[in-house]
Design a binder for these strands. Structure first.
Length: 403
DNA sequence: GCACCTTTGAAGCTG
DNA sequence: CAGCTTCAAAGGTGC
């Protein structure tokens, strides 16, 4: 219902993985050969890479479907929404047409896109990542703008204030959420984002590798574009700008909760959310199988209201309580990471759940990474091939013996 | 009015 | 370098 015009996956048109190269997404940075996350140097992407999504040539602009265009029309919302008071515009380079050219023409600008009039892009189109002036700015941490302009504290401060808030580019999951939120909301008539997100989180895991790959790829491109638009921008710019969340206790508490009483949550027990999703969680995610009977918090999570939870649902019933835990306790690396994932979702059932269900892409990439050179993605001729390869990977690889 | 909640992933920060 | 923290979206909720 929410599905607009496209029948196919909204991303398909974008990530058509043209025959040329399928990069299984831009999996966890380690795999992303395109950008050097460290140097921040956006490796000159293959023309063939960006162009299809972010046409740089003015001429091509109008005819090329926007990379994230699907996001916009779908919800009538831009990828980068701007908070109240701010603009609500799509990533210029994402949803625009004509503006693209001007945008692009400036993308290589050595410095941050001129904040022009409060965030307005020179083209007149505000960049979605540009949010009105500073967000809850804190006293000011001697702006350490990457640009490293040494100015007097005063002017720096001023500039900071004038400096529009450039948001982080969305990651794969965020993009996925953007796209699917409306759908889920429609299906479930749910509105609480927290609940929706839980559902989306599960669905995310139940996505096939290819599907996730699409989003990883999209996210990668998005980061690329972002870095091109804002060469000097760094996540650091936004770091600590938001009011600090006082969830210090959260992770720990969750751990404790998990250990002691999974049911008793601090504020909003996940129990509140999960049951709700039951009815709507798409059954489509039933490749599952593993992860059955999570003897766990699921008691609380697996709402009694939904006795017949789908596989997918059971697949991640722990995600809520376990995830933070896992995150806190396990390294995101290889075995630990994988096992944590597996454990969190299946811990008690099948011996190798990962084999019976699509390995979360992230996991997959980890696997790939561990078992293959960074070039792995590029080496895979097609998504199918990639899939085949991955599927062929013995699970043992997954639990790679950490270096 | 604003922080929280919730999710995953990317990136920054810290020890 | 490993591990932790913050932020990105989003909208109901609670203070």
């Amino acid at each position: 219902m929410v599905q607009p015009a496209h029948h196919m996956h909204p991303l398909t048109p974008l990530i058509t993985y043209s025959s040329d190269h399928f990069s299984p997404g831009s999996p966890p940075s380690h795999l992303s050969p395109e950008i050097d996350p460290k140097t921040g140097i956006p490796r000159p992407p293959h023309p063939s890479e960006l162009s299809p999504y972010y046409p740089l040539s003015p001429g091509a602009v109008g005819q090329i479907p926007h990379a994230l265009g699907w996001l916009v029309p779908q919800q009538g919302q831009p990828v980068y929404s701007i908070p109240p008071g701010g603009f609500r515009h799509p990533y210029p380079a994402l949803a625009m047409n004509a503006s693209m050219s001007s945008l692009m023409s400036s993308r290589f600008s050595p410095h941050m896109v001129p904040p022009a009039a409060h965030g307005l892009h020179p083209s007149g189109i505000p960049h979605p990542t540009i949010v009105s002036p500073i967000v809850k700015q804190e006293p000011t941490q001697a702006s350490m703008s990457p640009g490293g302009n040494s100015k007097s504290p005063g002017s720096v401060k001023k500039e900071e204030e004038k400096k529009p808030h450039i948001k982080k580019p969305l990651n794969a999951f965020m993009l996925y959420m953007k796209e699917m939120r409306a759908k889920v909301v429609a299906e479930c008539t749910l509105k609480e984002s927290a609940a929706i997100n839980q559902i989306l989180g599960r669905r995310w895991h139940s996505l096939s590798r290819e599907e996730q790959a699409k989003y990883y790829e999209l996210a990668r491109k998005e980061r690329q574009l972002h870095s091109q638009l804002y060469p000097t921008w760094s996540a650091r710019d936004n770091y600590g700008k938001k009011k600090k969340r006082k969830r210090e206790k959260q992770p720990q508490q969750q751990i404790q909760d998990t250990e002691s009483s999974l049911a008793s949550k601090s504020k909003k027990p996940c129990v509140q959310y999960l049951p709700i999703e039951k009815p709507c969680d798409s059954p489509a995610s039933s490749h599952g199988s593993m992860l059955d009977s999570p003897a766990t918090p699921s008691t609380a999570l697996a709402s009694p209201a939904a006795p017949a939870a789908t596989h997918s649902e059971q697949a991640q019933p722990l995600s809520l309580t376990t995830k933070p835990e896992a995150r806190a306790q396990l390294s995101l690396h290889s075995a630990a990471f994988l096992s944590s994932k597996a454990a969190s979702s299946s811990s008690l059932s099948s011996p190798s759940p990962l084999l019976s269900r699509p390995i979360p892409f992230a996991t997959m990439t980890h696997t790939a990474l561990l078992t293959s050179p960074p070039s792995f993605p590029a080496a895979i001729p097609s998504p199918q091939a990639a899939l085949a390869v991955l599927q062929a990977q013995p699970l043992s690889l997954v639990t790679k013996p950490a270096d």
